[in-house]
Design a protein around this nucleic acid. Structure first.
Lengths: 211, 211
DNA sequence: TTCGTTATGTATCAATCGCTCCACAATGAG
DNA sequence: CTCATTGTGGAGCGATTGATACATAACGAA
């Protein structure tokens, strides 16, 4: 009943998250959102409530694709390969993004006002989800003998999370492949995880890389 | 000649960086800046040009103290201890900050607009400075035999920088000591660096930590 | 003292902000 | 068809933004 929506919600969220991703919440105006999404203020406020509501939906839209990526890796390759593959994927996206947007979740995490604990907690939960992905994959890899035992999956996951967040910060201001691969490679190796594709795997110094 | 300034520039920058640090550039209004610094719009605009100018000065004020911290560590302890000490200091500040402000440099890095390459480059240079601190200390530690040779200081510094940035992101949304110490400890150990104070140093799983 | 110069305080400015109002269009139910 | 309901378009609301104008105050030089 009643008039149906004329816009494609996925397309709108694609556009909205693009802007929020690049410029952040505060620096994005509702004018720009209406211009880039193509729909009017009326439609936006009817569908999403207010600017924060649209931002939440846009971030969730972004996170959905992130979760799908993790789920894909979980089912398509071995646990150890899933971890390394996740970093490969992240680095690839970081260096190929001409806008240097980094990660929308990380950007949002740092812009989250101290006065908005609700949103901040939401971000924290999402980071915990990534940490759990690392922990579960690491433990599964140990169980199947793919990853040497001896290291606790908890600690490994904490380190992997920190390094991931670190290269996502670097993606925004210094998206240099050599820098990211160096940091990640030095993390994966002592954990007994497979090396990045195209990265030198020997312990000593390699002269093969180029920035 | 002429009328002298009535305000203490250091105190004003302290106040200004406090606000910018907690809320970011965009979310901070000039009204709040005048209220918290105690000086009038006229004085602010005469002294710093505009809002961006004040922000740049406030960030530089913050970075000066960061650089002093690194310089202090470089001269007061051994190279390996300087690296570990830097992380101890960072974690301590992160978990004790009730506002969960994280690091002003990292916050600024992620808020930096893609359309402002000048400011972005400034942040990148500062991150390179931290990376250089790690690299120099690591190399110095190897030369004096304090740190085992075999690993390249470049790679080690890249990893240390990434982990540092990672825990600074976590400081904003998940300032849990166990999480940070776990990530850092797992990084320091394979590099042959001294453990954090109060952290378990054995390879196996420890039950001593509490969040 | 008088004057030139610079800092401060207050009252705003124009622009932009997030958001709403209301007339109208497009549907399904009857 | 009529009508209730919901989406759309666009003008424009009050509030707030970053920044300024201008009168006054506080100094040093003469």
């Amino acid at each position: 009943m009643a008039r149906p929506r004329e816009f494609d919600e996925q397309a709108v969220l694609d556009a909205a998250s693009d802007i929020f991703w690049a410029k952040g919440f505060e620096a994005t105006s509702t004018r720009e959102l209406t211009a880039r999404t193509g729909l009017t203020p009326s439609s936006i406020y009817a569908a999403f409530g207010d600017k924060r509501g649209l931002f939440r939906c846009a971030l969730d839209h972004y996170l959905t694709r992130l979760r799908e990526k993790m789920a894909m890796l979980e089912t398509s390759v071995t646990p150890a390969q899933a971890i390394t593959g996740f970093f490969e994927h992240t680095i690839e996206r970081s260096v190929s993004d001409t806008q240097q947007r980094g990660c929308m979740l990380v950007n949002s995490a740092l812009e989250a006002s101290p006065a908005d604990p609700e949103f901040r907690d939401g971000v924290a939960v999402e980071l915990s989800r990534i940490e759990a992905f690392f922990r579960n994959q690491f433990a599964a890899g140990q169980e199947r003998g793919e990853i040497p035992a001896g290291l606790s999956p908890e600690t490994a996951a904490q380190q992997l999370l920190a390094v991931l967040l670190g290269i996502r910060v670097l993606a925004r201001v210094r998206p240099e492949r050599a820098l990211m691969t160096g940091a990640v490679q030095q993390t994966l190796q002592p954990l007994g995880l497979p090396p990045l594709k195209g990265a030198a795997s020997s312990t000593g110094k390699s002269h093969r890389d180029k920035s």
